[in-house]
Simulated assay, not measured.
Amino acid sequence: MKLLVIRLSAFGDVAMTVPVIDSLARQYPQLDITVLSRPFMAPLFSLMPANVHFQGIDLAQNDGPSGLLALFRQLHGEGFNLVADLHDVLRSKVLRTLFFLSGVKTAHIDKGRRGKKALVRQHGKELVEQPTSFSRYAAVFARLGYPVKPAFHSIYGQGKGDASLFASVAVPACGEQWIGVAPFAAHRGKILPQATVEELLRRLTADNRHRVFLFGGGGQERAAMEQWAAAYPRVVSLSGKLKLDGELALISHLNVMVSMDSANMHLASLVGVPVVSVWGATHPFAGFMGWGQSMDNTVQLDLPCRPCSIFGNKPCLRGDYACLEGLKAEMIMNKINLILGV
């Protein structure tokens, strides 16, 4: 049987498919699985069992009715018997519908919009933990006849990534404790205030055993990271310095990652590294906690308005982002120290 798995974006959501697809492939070695996503996601799937294949597509070239029809014809010619839509957006809906009309069995994710809406509404909020994305993905495969029990530790198994992939920025040293800090995210409601980041870096670098790696993107994020790296000893900015496979390998060598509700939380989870996850406008109850991570390692404030957003993209109802501004570096340090056994 040939299975097509569709999950085109976003980065964190694609990363969350990995534990489930890896487990599926190992439980059903006779199943030939192709993951359809954006090309730069390929390293997430490169170390999977041999029955998993990755196919990257350029969304711009496969947009609109004619582009999607051409993509369908290409995929249909590859002889898929099953289609799992783990995205449920317009593009994936069109693709799976075309497959369905051609006689291929399909199933798609239930995103649980009603429960999530109740979780974030301003009045009559229902703070009820929602099913995780992992369980929602697994449910799709079950509906296709392949129930899966995710059993996953790391894309590197019980080992770590190849240190040569990040040798240009760091070399593991005996006695050092490597700590990742990823204070940024795509939306304002999930970004740690710069003053809090600076205080956290000051506390971390006060210990000569600590080497701190800053994770983030380009533009203003890169400028801030370079400024912090210049101001604090043993702090390294990774913005623009490594490819995804290099970042994954380096993360696997961390003792702990500090991350907002963002893709870096999930990358650390995929390589078996404990995460101190920091939550502002969003909440772990929405189902996006990293694989294998503990609620005991979360940092968040108990405010009646939280959570106000599933993705952190809505303006603050109070106007002051108290859920983020009220977080203290000491709160994060306490969680780090617990993980490090200090």
Score class of each variant (00 low, 15 high):
residue 14 V to T: 05
residue 17 T to N: 05
residue 20 V to M: 05
residue 22 D to W: 11
residue 25 A to W: 03
residue 25 A to H: 07
residue 30 Q to M: 10
residue 30 Q to V: 02
residue 31 L to G: 11
residue 33 I to S: 07
residue 34 T to F: 03
residue 40 F to C: 05
residue 42 A to H: 02
residue 48 M to G: 12
residue 48 M to S: 09
residue 52 V to C: 09
residue 58 D to P: 08
residue 61 Q to L: 12
residue 63 D to V: 09
residue 65 P to A: 07
residue 65 P to I: 01
residue 70 A to R: 10
residue 74 Q to P: 00
residue 74 Q to G: 06
residue 76 H to Q: 15
residue 77 G to P: 08
residue 81 N to H: 14
residue 88 D to C: 09
residue 101 L to M: 11
residue 102 S to W: 15
residue 107 A to F: 11
residue 114 R to Q: 14
residue 116 K to L: 11
residue 117 K to Q: 10
residue 122 Q to K: 15
residue 126 E to T: 10
residue 128 V to P: 10
residue 130 Q to C: 11
residue 131 P to E: 10
residue 134 F to M: 05
residue 135 S to K: 12
residue 138 A to G: 04
residue 143 R to T: 05
residue 143 R to P: 00
residue 145 G to L: 14
residue 152 F to M: 09
residue 153 H to V: 12
residue 158 Q to N: 15
residue 159 G to L: 07
residue 167 A to H: 08
residue 168 S to E: 11
residue 171 V to E: 14
residue 171 V to I: 15
residue 177 Q to G: 03
residue 181 V to F: 08
residue 183 P to K: 05
residue 184 F to A: 05
residue 185 A to P: 01
residue 186 A to L: 07
residue 186 A to F: 07
residue 186 A to K: 12
residue 187 H to W: 14
residue 188 R to S: 13
residue 189 G to M: 08
residue 192 L to M: 15
residue 193 P to N: 11
residue 203 R to M: 09
residue 211 R to L: 10
residue 215 F to D: 12
residue 220 Q to E: 12
residue 221 E to K: 10
residue 221 E to S: 11
residue 222 R to C: 08
residue 224 A to W: 02
residue 226 E to M: 08
residue 232 Y to F: 15
residue 237 S to L: 09
residue 240 G to H: 04
residue 243 K to D: 14
residue 244 L to F: 05
residue 244 L to D: 01
residue 250 L to E: 06
residue 251 I to T: 03
residue 256 V to L: 13
residue 260 M to K: 05
residue 267 L to W: 14
residue 270 L to I: 08
residue 270 L to D: 08
residue 270 L to T: 05
residue 272 G to P: 08
residue 273 V to A: 13
residue 281 A to S: 14
residue 281 A to H: 11
residue 282 T to L: 07
residue 286 A to D: 01
residue 295 M to F: 14
residue 303 L to D: 09
residue 304 P to Y: 14
residue 304 P to L: 07
residue 306 R to I: 00
residue 308 C to V: 02
residue 309 S to M: 13
residue 310 I to V: 13
residue 311 F to V: 13
residue 311 F to H: 12
residue 312 G to C: 13
residue 324 L to T: 04
residue 329 A to S: 01
residue 334 N to F: 02
residue 335 K to L: 07
residue 335 K to F: 11
residue 339 I to L: 15
